[in-house]
């Protein structure tokens, strides 16, 4: 069992120092850091914390998913922006 960081991650480094297993690392690529959770080390914080620390501090909805691909912070859960407005935003971004 392991969590995964997907490509909507903005590379803010907030999760990296919190991981009790040091499972998160930054892969410095030109322009943007990308974060990676080592599945062999991730325990989803069982035994260390009540809740997975990376998902607790992550500011980006949908950026951290579980083994079934389910977002730990679903759309709208962190910002409180209603889903239909988020949808409109995304459509506007696609048109650009």
């Amino acid at each position: 069992m392991s969590l995964e960081i997907v490509d909507s991650c903005v590379g803010c480094f907030a999760c990296e120092p919190l991981c009790p297993n040091k499972a998160i690392s930054a892969v410095m690529q030109p322009g943007e850091p990308l974060f990676f959770i080592n599945p062999d080390k991730c325990t989803e914080c069982l035994g260390d914390h009540d809740l997975p620390q990376c998902a607790e501090i992550c500011p980006i909805e949908g950026a951290i998913v579980d083994e079934y691909g389910e977002a730990l912070n679903p759309l709208g859960s962190l910002t409180g922006i209603p889903l239909h407005l988020l949808e409109q935003m995304r459509e506007a971004e696609c048109r650009q």
Partner: peptide
Amino acid sequence: APACNIQCNYCNRKYDCSNESRPGVVSEL
């Protein structure tokens, strides 16, 4: 300093934007 420990309603953490001039926005970390 990219990490933050709170969320403010006037901030969007997708901070990388070269055309905006406002706090919280940068081009290069």
